[in-house]
Design a protein around this nucleic acid. Structure first.
Lengths: 149, 149
DNA sequence: CTAGGACCTCGACGGGACTTGAGGTCAACG
DNA sequence: CGTTGACCTCAAGTCCCGTCGAGGTCCTAG
């Protein structure tokens, strides 16, 4: 099997825990690249494992593959990402995460303030009437103006 | 149009801000119900608006419709959900949200602790090797054991 | 009587991230 | 020589949450 150097899909799959089908998919999406043997089999450079590790982190963070692809486009293609690369990406991704956490916290606070409140009148409640809709007053703002039921 | 009482889809859509197609969809999914006029048109009880308000909240919280359906199954079918109902659901949903926030915070802390760390050795790093994989040591645990590249 | 608007059903499409399956190739082993 | 086993491609399917369109019905107004 070692006709060439580089890892086969099967090896990469075993070592990374990523399914072969997913590797094919990532390659189609341009997230990883491979060369081919004379028999048309993929051979991956070892640092593909590093990329896959980054990819897994990004996914745990909830980032879409498109965003990961953007990030990967800034990495050197021919060698493993360096510590500085990882540092840069992780900072960037963490900022993203921070934002999402903050948004969820705001939402939680709204809900908390709303538990057992007079929400059933559903006019002033911030949970029922999200901030973004509170700006204008055209159709779409007080969406629930029939809801006093 | 007022052949029967109850709201038509168009009215519900206008008052709730939910597209007609979505109302049809929710009905197929069993989230809301309607009666029909002799001409086979839907008529909704007014408290459907209350349900839709709850539904919107749940969606803002990021809950899947299946979970909303479960919750709705615990609501009275024939009348509007009471304040106690709303209180119960909002508490439940908030707990869910709290959990997700906590998980994201743990993740953020891991990433923060990892920025610029020796992650490139990728063995002990908590971001690279999620907690749930740290338990066993069979295939699947130290997934990146080939990653020292 | 006819045009319009609101409604009906059913089936297909979109995007994200894959998986599954069918059908075929390549290389080594006995 | 034949049979594994790992690999290949391409198309289609899955899940979620709807949206869109075609083709048809119903009711009311002009």
């Amino acid at each position: 099997m070692r006709e060439d150097d580089g890892l086969s899909v099967g090896e990469v799959s075993a070592r990374s825990g990523v399914a072969v089908s997913a590797l094919h998919y990532y390659e189609r999406r341009g997230l990883i690249t491979s060369t081919r043997t004379v028999g048309n089999q993929r051979r991956y450079p070892r640092h593909v494992l590093r990329r896959l590790a980054l990819l897994r982190v990004a996914q745990r963070l909830g980032l879409p593959l498109a965003r990961v692809a953007d990030a990967f486009a800034t990495l050197p293609a021919d060698r493993a990402p360096s510590r500085r690369d990882w540092e840069r990406l992780s900072r960037e991704w963490r900022a993203d995460l921070d934002e999402r956490i903050a948004a969820l916290e705001r939402l939680r606070d709204d809900v908390t303030g709303c538990i057992g409140c007079g929400c059933l009148s559903m006019r002033t409640c911030r949970v029922m009437n999200p901030a973004d809709a509170a700006a204008g007053r055209g159709p779409g703002s007080s969406l629930l103006r029939g809801a006093e039921d």
